[in-house]
């Protein structure tokens, strides 16, 4: 009987405050994503070199497409790997 009693916490469970995501391009006023600069593009790739989704990076749709195009061009020129492990 006691099991189905709800567990009561002393302090309310600390869910991490949802950090308001923002599009870094709009904020910084960047207009063009350069495909020749792999260091900057790496911020949008995960460890395996895959492009991070918008819900993680928070970029707007317009700039997510520009980033994706830039990453694919950089991959073609071997500035960025197609797939790797432990990049960064």
């Amino acid at each position: 009987m006691a099991q189905n009693e709800e567990i009561r916490y002393l302090t309310p469970k600390q869910t991490d405050q949802k950090k308001k995501k923002y599009c870094r391009f709009k904020k910084a006023g960047i207009k063009y994503v350069d495909y020749k600069d792999p260091e900057f593009l790496k911020k949008f790739l995960n460890e395996q070199g895959k492009i991070l989704p918008r819900r993680i990076t928070g970029t707007s749709l317009k700039f997510q497409r520009k980033v994706a195009q830039a990453v694919k061009k950089a991959r073609h020129l071997a500035l960025l790997p197609y797939v790797t492990d432990m990049m960064k």
Binding site: K31, Y32, D34, Y35, K73, H76, L77, A78
Partner: peptide, 15 residues
């Protein structure tokens, strides 16, 4: 080994 030609639009040219 490899080459890539891109057309520069307004923002790209400015950059």
């Amino acid at each position: 080994l490899r080459f890539l030609t891109t057309r520069l639009d307004k923002y790209a040219f400015e950059y």
